[in-house]
């Protein structure tokens, strides 16, 4: 469904990603794990069209999307829930969600979609008319996820959804990721929380210094010696 081939990308003259190739198949939950600074966020931003790769190609459902602008990528059905939530703080929660449905394919039936999404997030429903900035960190993360779902994407990408959240909220976030995947949406998730993420995901890629060093089924990765030593501390 989504395929990156030999991607080199970075900011300005610095290259962060080197020869990254990965694939996400329809209906899968795929994760990219790795330490801080390994290039996980850069990978997602490159797919989302916010960074143009220097080399390599990205295709989605058979179409070459390497050179598309960010808004065009969203139109194709790829939505990124960014790190740090990036809500529109002065706007109400409802307005944030409606903006999520800006994509042409999502605009027509956004009322019904809003109801569907809110049934997953009952707490968000109670906060609909509050300014997004007034919510707690956990609630804001729920709004960010709900906003991403409003676009009705074919593939939803999460960038560090557990960052800065209390442990109980973290487990709620992963429950929701599972729920979203259960409705048939493909998920690509980037995390530093390696153990929990591999428990949720079908397959994983390990990114170190901008290169994929390991890939495989989640169980296999959880039992891999290198992963156990470097990321799980076992």
């Amino acid at each position: 469904m989504l395929k990156l081939e030999n991607i080199h990308a970075g900011y300005g003259p610095t290259t962060i990603l080197q020869n990254v190739s990965l694939e996400v198949k329809e209906g899968e939950i795929v994760t990219i794990v790795g330490a801080n600074g390994a290039g996980k966020t850069t990978t997602l931003r490159t797919i989302a069209g916010l960074i143009k790769p220097k080399q390599g190609s990205i295709s989605f459902c058979g179409e070459d999307i390497t050179r598309l602008r960010g808004d065009q990528v969203v139109d194709r059905g790829i939505t990124l829930i960014p790190e740090g939530r990036q809500l529109f703080g002065d706007m109400t929660v409802r307005e944030n969600l409606l903006i999520g449905a800006f994509r042409a394919a999502a605009r027509a039936n956004h009322e019904r979609r809003l109801d569907e999404v809110l049934s997953i997030f009952p707490r968000v429903r109670e906060r609909l008319d509050q300014a997004a900035a007034s919510l707690s960190g956990g609630e804001q993360q729920m709004v960010a996820i709900a906003r991403g779902m409003m676009a009705q994407p074919k593939i939803l990408m999460f960038d560090e959804p557990s960052l800065g959240l209390a442990p109980i909220v973290v487990s709620q976030v992963f429950d929701i990721v599972r729920q979203i995947a259960g409705t048939g949406t493909t998920v690509l998730i980037v995390e530093q929380n390696v153990y929990t993420t591999l428990k949720v995901a079908d397959r994983g890629y390990v990114l170190e210094n901008g290169q994929i060093v390991l890939e495989g089924q989640s169980e296999a990765l959880l039992n891999d010696d290198h992963i156990r030593q470097a990321y799980l501390g076992i």
Binding site: G70, V74, G89, I99, R147
Partner: peptide, 23 residues
């Protein structure tokens, strides 16, 4: 919806782009 999009761009340009708005 276009007014909301305008305010979204004014507040956070890159997040607006992630919503599919042509900034």
């Amino acid at each position: 919806q276009i007014g909301r999009a305008i305010r979204a761009v004014a507040q956070n340009r890159s997040a607006a782009e992630l919503m599919g708005i042509n900034v």
